[in-house]
Design a protein around this nucleic acid. Structure first.
Lengths: 195, 195
DNA sequence: GATCATATGGAGTCGCGACTTCGGATATCA
DNA sequence: TGATATCCGAAGTCGCGACTCCATATGATC
């Protein structure tokens, strides 16, 4: 675990990266029931190589999730420094939905990992959730999102809408209208404010 | 296949019903990856009995779905004869979401079965979808739902919100607020009509 | 209550997928 | 270029879950 006699070989590091890339796609398409063997095959390595880099299938899936969560958090964080908080919030929402459209396993995990799952993934998930919370808060302060909604339901709707978008049978236009309905529900309604 | 020499024995019919009931609960809780053996155990029968009544696990799941879809369609059909079409639509939406909260597999199948799945389940699913379509149309004619939304996205949102409700970590209040957001998005907005 | 087709359940088989082993290949450093 | 630690893949093992076989039990008919 401490500094080994020799550094990790470059081919090993390259393989690890390729496995991670392929796993993201395979788990994204087939969910977590996709087989490790397929990951190995598409990555062009033997099964043993996959298991050497990631001791279990769960560890592989977790590594994929951590990377994805961290990436999303980074994007959300960048949007935090934007001038228009409302646009930032809705942009991120739209981006995540479009992105998750082909990533079944990621969508599934967005909520689950927040529960009691293994340390690293849960931590990354919480980091993402916190940043989305900040995005939401700013948007609310700017008056772009209703004040009476809270993070849990927004996050839940985010995941739900992502899953909707993941369905291939649904027309693009219908997906857009579904998103519009949710956005409309999140937007403050001037005619109702007085009540 | 034609009338057999003797009618089905009453214990066999009773077992079939119990298996179906238990299967609905087991698949509802654990999704379609739940094991057939657990269904048999909880139904108090041997595993062979399950497979005698339903030749494959898929056939069992399909039988569960057909029964559930037909039941939902019946409820939706009853609401069609109600005096307030808007209330009928939103009531059914609310009912389905609450009902699907503990039925993972059913929620998954609501959209999938509409695709290219096996005959019977697809047929039942389409029947349900058509009835929901009528419910939606009536609600729109009554001015309770925006005119510019169509069945596909409404159905998708229905399923997505159901999945949201299935999550145990989410507070009841948050679920209610999520539903309120969707309903709000579906309701015509007077201040925007003039545009 | 005797007969017998129907139904049952426990003990299998079989295939699939997660994970391991080990002889051989390959990058790294002198 | 040679030595060696690191890395690799093909061929395993192992457990789990879908599905089958057969000796036994039981409801239906007389």
């Amino acid at each position: 675990m401490s500094t080994p006699g020799r550094a990790q070989r470059v081919d090993a590091r390259a393989n690890r990266g390729r496995i991670l890339d392929v796993a993201e796609e395979v788990f994204g398409k087939g969910g977590e029931s996709a087989s490790t063997e397929e990951v190995a095959r598409l990555a062009g390595v033997g099964i043993a190589t996959v298991f050497r880099h990631f001791p279990t299938k769960a560890a592989l899936l977790q590594a994929v999730l951590v990377r994805r969560f961290d990436g999303l958090r980074e994007q959300a964080g960048a949007l935090l420094d934007t001038t228009d908080p409302g646009a930032a919030f809705f942009d991120f929402f739209r981006h995540l939905v479009a992105d998750a459209a082909t990533k079944i396993a990621i969508g599934e995990a967005l909520l689950d990992a927040g529960g009691d799952r293994d340390g690293e993934a849960a931590q990354a998930s919480n980091g993402l959730r916190r940043t989305v919370g900040a995005l939401l808060q700013h948007a609310q302060q700017a008056g772009a999102v209703r004040d009476d909604v809270e993070l849990p339901e927004v996050y839940a709707l985010l995941v739900a809408t992502s899953r909707t978008a993941a369905h291939p049978d649904l027309e693009e236009e219908a997906k857009a209208r579904a998103l519009a309905i949710v956005f409309d529900g999140l937007t403050p309604d001037p005619s109702r404010r007085s009540g």
